[in-house]
Design a protein around this nucleic acid. Sequence first.
DNA 1: TAGATTGTTAATCGATTAACAATC
DNA 2: TAGATTGTTAATCGATTAACAATC
Lengths: 215, 215
Amino acid sequence: MLQAPPQTAPTDRLTVGVAARLSRYLQVLTQAKKMGKARISSQEISDYTNINATQIRRDLSAFGKFGKRGVGYNIDSLLGEIRKILRTQGQHNILLVGAGRLGEAIVSSPIFAEHGIHIAAIVDTDPEKVGRHVGDIGVSDYGELGDLVRDKNIIVGVLAVPATSAQQAAEDLVDSGVKIIFNYSEALLDVPSDVAVHTSNPAVDLLYALYFHLT
Amino acid sequence: MLQAPPQTAPTDRLTVGVAARLSRYLQVLTQAKKMGKARISSQEISDYTNINATQIRRDLSAFGKFGKRGVGYNIDSLLGEIRKILRTQGQHNILLVGAGRLGEAIVSSPIFAEHGIHIAAIVDTDPEKVGRHVGDIGVSDYGELGDLVRDKNIIVGVLAVPATSAQQAAEDLVDSGVKIIFNYSEALLDVPSDVAVHTSNPAVDLLYALYFHLT
DNA sequence: TAGATTGTTAATCGATTAACAATC
DNA sequence: TAGATTGTTAATCGATTAACAATC
């Protein structure tokens, strides 16, 4: 069987599955590093992600030989390699809509900063909340949403608002030019087809986890 | 439920993928019903979930002919069918560890109640928080965790605590007999192999969404 | 060396997609 | 009827897994 050229170009666009898995490896490596580990094996990553260890080695070896046989992967260098593959080296500015309990919980999480995601602005409609600080960031009036998106070079809008306000907020983000929306509300959003909506729904995950472990 | 079993046996255990997708359909249907809709097409479900419409029809038709050609699916009846398939009709009791901002946000979300998941108890180590109410539920002292798990028939523990406390809380849940842990912290948890850990990590999803829409 | 773990192959299984007849 | 959408098939693609030589 005639084979294609030995090194097929891995610089092509990743599949959704590969990008999702690489992101999870990144998170495990970040945490393992914080715990003081210097090396990690594919089996350890598998234990934390429930992704098959062979699949992990396969994913990584498609981009290079990052591991050492008999030893495992160096956490620092693997972090760098995956960041290169995902091109998430730069800073990404996001705007948070909603300074309630969920919004506060999101801002206070170290996860975003660890991955180069910068919460550049927070807006809320409640006059009581405008001017207050959540973490390091002052809460702006909701009416400034459009200006903030332009001035702060916002590329992602994160919705941490009640379901009843989510559609309106999504429309205002879209009108300001935001093309990626992260929806933490339970609402279904109608947006133009060139806008990507990711709805993050922990309760849905829980439901399916229940199915699996109760039967 | 006097229905004769179809020829192929769909009473077998579902695959992980099917169970996860059915859970997402359930969430979309629940929301669409709240919005006053009575019917929905596979294409509409596809728009909200980013799951291919053919895949949705295929998933559903494996369990019966729930739709009407030219019309779509009746939301109420499809909700009932999927709940039957996932066997999530009953009440499931969960215990929440941590009454901070994230814990409060979780309790105040209507999603859990909508899917028959009952937050039966909340514990926290902070004496300031013990005795207070979060939503309808009083906060108990962390030391009562074991008793609460037994008395309230808890099957799932939800961790909404800082990463530094997560491992200890996981161990205490495991010692009390809990076999399903939902981890909203960024910590990596080491638990016995018969305990299932689901880590829900919005920032990781965001990271991979960024890869897809920035390139 | 002896043990451990990667990198890789090959086989299988499930997901995805286009297409379209059936039928509401 | 005419338009819409399901249910289903068939082809293809990606994920999963076991196995194991290479090699640290």
